[in-house]
């Protein structure tokens, strides 16, 4: 493994800390926010730029240290991008369904289903 040039190390370090920081803030939000629907927004910090920044750091690091384009981490990014909407939509709908079934007041403009 070759030593990275200084600029690359700084870029990789920046993306790593940015991604981990956003993910941490998302998890703080998951713990701090009060209602379930608010909390539904918190993990998307980790799955959007949190994941993208970490993956970019990994792609840059492996591509430079191995001297060829290493793109396999982008598969994880693509995978997160496709699966998160499915899980969060289904979870949101499940919560809505449960709240309506128990007649918990949900702030909706009108009934959608």
């Amino acid at each position: 493994m070759t030593e990275l040039p200084l600029w690359a190390a700084i870029v990789v370090a920046f993306f790593l800390v940015l991604g981990a920081g956003l993910t941490l803030i998302g998890s703080i939000g998951l713990l701090r926010l009060r209602s379930f629907y608010d909390r539904l927004h918190a993990p998307t910090l980790g799955t959007s730029w949190g994941a993208l920044a970490t993956i970019l750091a990994s792609v840059i690091f492996f591509s430079l240290s191995e001297g060829r384009l290493v793109l396999h981490d982008l598969v994880i990014g693509f995978f997160i991008m496709c699966t998160t909407p499915v899980t969060l939509m289904l979870l949101g709908r499940a919560a809505l369904y449960r709240d309506r079934a128990e007649n918990t007041p949900v702030v909706t403009p009108s009934e959608t289903e």
Partner: peptide, 14 residues
């Protein structure tokens, strides 16, 4: 130098 930066950043991120 760049090794130290990477080590600190990865530890921080972890």
């Amino acid at each position: 130098m760049s090794g130290t930066i990477l080590l600190v950043a990865t530890l921080l991120a972890q």
